[in-house]
Amino acid sequence: MNGEHLESTVEHKPTYGIYILVWLVLMMLTGVTVAVAGINFGNITVATALTIAIIKSYLVLTFFMHLKTETATFKIFVGVALLFLLISIALLFSDYSFL
């Protein structure tokens, strides 16, 4: 147990740089999403906004929340949780979008 613990923290030396870089990208993406919303793409607008939001949360999950350096268990767990949400949305919309 402890071996696993040491592995996941000591291996990666803490540095500030990467986080500031990620933050800059997040800022940029925020700018992009606001700018894009100004232009009327019609139906694609929502899709674009959501895609950018997904990219942003991916960055937060991977870097800020250290998912990158965690063991496989953590990644599987996140996968299971997201899968549950996706299934719920998909099945719920089997009722609504085909009405």
Binding site: T33, A37, T45, A49, L50, S57, V60, L61, F64, M65
Partner: peptide, 21 residues
């Protein structure tokens, strides 16, 4: 920190869904 990031992620979705549509 993890908790705080989650709060952030939720806002990342709230923002476009309410302000950008």
């Amino acid at each position: 920190g993890l908790y705080w990031h989650l709060v952030d992620i939720i806002w990342i979705f709230l923002f476009p869904l309410f302000y950008l549509i």
